[in-house]
Write a protein that binds this DNA or RNA. Sequence first.
DNA 1: TTAGTTGATGGTACCGCGTACCATTCCTGC
DNA 2: GCAGGAATGGTACGCGGTACCATCAACTAA
Lengths: 226, 226
Amino acid sequence: MTAVPKSSVRERLMDAAFELFGERGYELTTVDDIADRAGVGRTTFFRNFRSKDDVIFPDHDHLIEAIKGRLATSTNSTAIVAVSEAVRLVLLRYIEEGERARMRYALTSRVAALRDREIAGVAQYQRLFREFIANWMGPSQDTALRAELMAASVVAAHNHVLRRWLRGDTVDPMAEVDGAMAQVIALFPSVPAEPTETSTAIIVLHTSQSPHELLPAIRRAIGSTP
Amino acid sequence: MTAVPKSSVRERLMDAAFELFGERGYELTTVDDIADRAGVGRTTFFRNFRSKDDVIFPDHDHLIEAIKGRLATSTNSTAIVAVSEAVRLVLLRYIEEGERARMRYALTSRVAALRDREIAGVAQYQRLFREFIANWMGPSQDTALRAELMAASVVAAHNHVLRRWLRGDTVDPMAEVDGAMAQVIALFPSVPAEPTETSTAIIVLHTSQSPHELLPAIRRAIGSTP
DNA sequence: TTAGTTGATGGTACCGCGTACCATTCCTGC
DNA sequence: GCAGGAATGGTACGCGGTACCATCAACTAA
């Protein structure tokens, strides 16, 4: 009888949940409360969301799939671009959510169970990035750690900018995430990318470090083997 | 009447839990089962462990406190040493657990709830490291991201070696974690360490990257401002 | 010895999440 | 109109986790 489209039940449940969580807090809100306010039965809630906290992270699965899809369409030479764009994609999803993302942030900041849940979700992203980067870098023994470090850094960079936006500390998060990703990429200079052409770099700079200290870092920066 | 020392109740509960989880799996084991096998009441279980999955991570809180303690006893000049030793401390705790750590790994690999729980615990370590490194680097705006990247890398390096040991892929994890930490430290060259004396570095190397590409990386490597 | 205190334990009852199952309703194609 | 499928609501149950109370042992003070 309801003239609303089918998916509106899910929407009403999400709205009711966020309202109640804001009014009484997460623990003091029962699933029955949410279902009642949404005007549906308890069973319907669990048909739309796997668990009570699932209503806080509604399209997490879609986001995971979106990342997979973006990473899948990349060649070796465009791997870094794919990673960067996947990060932008995630951040963009949060920004599009707007106020709801900020409400989730308020909830995950106060409720330990929700914070753990969000951290677990982030770990899924990190796993995707790790596997992708590891495949990209090749099966060498040493690259496994390198891939893990890079994936962790990529996710950390994203989270850093995301939290800044959630707290209202920035008005241009997309620009910031580009900068943060540039820092990450600079940390991991020139992975086994196919050599294009060899050039010679001569750098003269004043520094407080001794050449002996910084030479290893620069060797890694240019991907040269001693 | 039991002539066993007081703490043995807790031990018996842990033993019973790991036994039953190994026999029937985690979900198919109830808290009553664990309490029964340990010969105590259900109430006693929850007096010793906050929740069912807490029995899997018994001394997580002590480990957190141990990290805090190790990081607290450090000056600016010994910060990196403190971080490295804290990482060694964590890894050592796992190794000392021996077979129990491997059983936990088997469980967390199969049961999603336990994996999430473990990830949340690791996030606590990462938070400690992030705050410590951020304090160490100073309050500058730019260092916030740098601290976050480094903390994520430190934890990733630890986890990488830990998982290798858990899988039996290495026999000398302490040496490996030193190497992994060295890689991490090399990624973040000489943070705002107190300037000693200025010298001039001239580096000439062949590389497949254009000078334009690698100049930013080298600028950061030597801590120079353009 | 007796009385009171403290701590650990066991038991019972309860709440809330999540699942399984069943009955009802609505909607669609024949 | 009728049959079949999808969505819904209701009921019952298992289990984790909490609150509360009663019991018992050990220690202490009179």
